[in-house]
Design a protein around this nucleic acid. Structure first.
Lengths: 216, 216
DNA sequence: AAAGATGCTATAACAGTGTTATTTCCAAAA
DNA sequence: TTTTGGAAATAACACTGTTATAGCATCTTT
């Protein structure tokens, strides 16, 4: 057993721990998506990975710590979904595509979305650090807003604060539609949710980020 | 003891039951607003009104039944807040005032709002009947939208479906802003939430319910 | 190599939850 | 007065998050 070789014993053990941790989170994530947030109990997870609850507590501290990890996973998935949106085309269309990807993520990963943005877990409030991670997802939207404004306008026309505000308004729009949809407040025969969201976004964008008149 | 007089014994008992029921709901509502949804346990309520949990179960069936009543209470409070908004002035301003009242209600009665529109109670899904009560709150907004469109436009221009869709879009806008605010996703120094909401609503209204050019 | 120290894990316990079966008890009817 | 009916309190069951205890295997030291 080499005491200070390439693979120290402690290092190997730590590596093993990390993989174990990842495996546990994978299983927990599966359970979450299969049976929802109420099925997420420490005992249930423990028996799922065939261990005692004690190891969960030594690994994650408490349930809040475990949910924190899921929270971060959710934002990681959201980030990937957002990064996959092609940036080509008109900046406005990029904003629409971004929002559509967000909308799609929220509906397909409803349980994750509920943890991230609705406060569905009782007594779970994300830590300040995690909240900051959440706000970082806004950066893509902020950049898109700035790209939307710069080409024909004076570069200094949109301040950082203004770009943030517009991005936040757009975010609230999508969040509102998603929220009502997930809460079950839906329903008029013949109107689709995508359609409504698109109309709302177009109104916002065309009013707050007006396209200059086409060059004649 | 008159068997079929004005005050039958059973009637008196039923009346007493109803007042008891109301009293229990009052206390439960206080507890909810004082300590939040996680404090709402059957045992806690029982000891609050000095009775056993059994009477709660014979009265409300189960916790879902009790929360259903709170759900209805919340919508009743929301309806009162909305009805208190004066209808005079421009229809557009009425829409803004309506949304401001909604926004204010959501922030001051955050726990109620969470029960009504976020799915904060685990495994609580409002019954179909209750969902319909919720959608009925939209009627005020729908009427306001129609009033906003009729004066200068052809009365037949806005169909019922179209009015519903626009009202629903406005609702989603307010809901989105409220939701992000309640979830803690707020924060740029110097921008207020009222300000952002007003901008978003103006964009929506002016784009979807355009005011005709003022008479010169 | 044997003995002691260390740290990790399973078991079991505590306090709390929703819900229900059992018992107890009091009031109405015969 | 006795019987009977229904309502309410008690206690139990199966859960939850969390933690103290105890056991066991490993590493360190002599």
């Amino acid at each position: 057993m080499p005491k200070n070789g390439i693979t120290n014993y402690r290092d190997a053990q730590d590596l093993h721990q990390q993989e174990l941790r990842k495996g546990i989170l994978d299983d927990t994530s599966d359970l979450l998506m299969r049976e929802g947030t109420t099925a997420l109990s420490m005992r249930r997870i423990a028996q799922l990975v065939s261990c005692s609850t004690t190891v969960l507590y030594t690994m994650f501290g408490n349930k809040q710590g475990l949910v924190d990890e899921l929270y971060l996973r959710g934002f990681e998935m959201l980030r990937q979904a957002i990064e996959a949106v092609p940036c080509s085309g008109h900046p406005q269309d990029y904003i629409y595509a971004l929002c559509a990807a967000y909308h799609n993520f929220a509906l397909t990963h409803a349980t994750y979305y509920a943890i991230m943005f609705l406060k569905i877990m009782p007594d779970y409030t994300p830590s300040k650090e995690n909240l900051e991670v959440g706000e970082k997802s806004l950066q893509f939207l902020i950049k898109a807003v700035q790209d939307c404004a710069t080409p024909q306008t004076i570069p200094e026309a949109i301040s950082e604060s203004e770009a943030w505000e517009i991005a936040r308004i757009i975010w609230a729009t999508v969040h509102g539609h998603v929220g009502l949809e997930l809460a079950g407040h839906f329903g008029y025969p013949g109107v689709s949710s995508q359609q409504m969201l698109k109309r709302a976004l177009q109104a916002i964008v065309e009013q707050l980020l007006p396209t200059p008149n086409p060059i004649p």
